[in-house]
Structures are given as C-alpha cells and as structure tokens.
Amino acid sequence: MEMILEQDAGHCLLRMEGEMTIYHAMEIKQKFMEILHDFEEVTVSLAKVTDMDTTGAQLLILIKKEAQATGRHLTLSDHSPSVLAVLDLYNLAGQLGDPMFIPHGHGRHGDRS
C-alpha cells in the first residue's frame, strides 16, 4: 500500500495505490486522520486501488463522516473498478455521495452525526 500525498496551500490530494484491505487498515486510518487534521480540502484518489475489502469501505465511510463532523471538504475521486465493485455491492454510493452519479452532499438517507 502506497499513499502519496501532493499538497498546496490548504488543499491536498492523496493517491491511494495498492490494497485497501485489513492488512493496511491501521496505517490508512492513521493517514486519513492526519490529512483531515492538516487540510481544509482533501481529495482522495482511488484510481490505483487494486483491491478493497470491508475495512476499506468502512474507512471511506469513516473519513466521510469525520469530514462532515469537522467541517472539512472531502472528495473521493477516480474510483477504480475494485472500489466500485465493493461500493456497488454495498450500495454505498448514495451514502458516500461522491461517485459521479450524485454531486457533493449527503446521501438520500443521510448520515447521522
């Protein structure tokens, strides 16, 4: 798992590369929390995620909730096919809000804070 951070003032792009699985869940969470703390506006690119399991999906939800709770702006972008497969099966697109189908904002069912 590689997490490459590109930043400019107040904004950052985190490129996730490799597996978003339980084996890396700890470090991913760590990284997510760091960038949410450090930046106002965050984009996480999932283009190079080769594999995702439930922990990965949970972390995406977590970061999304956390961003809302702390008033940060978070975008998940460029979902790779493996990511889409999981989000599709879990029908999470609506709750996450990001995927191309629905613009920024809350999912239909809304997240509880």
Partner: peptide, 9 residues
C-alpha cells in the same frame, strides 16, 4: 448498508 454503528474516528 447501515453505517450507524461506526463510532467517531
């Protein structure tokens, strides 16, 4: 998918 149980970060 119910995500309600996910606690604060």
């Amino acid at each position: 998918t119910l995500t309600d149980a996910i606690p604060p970060a």
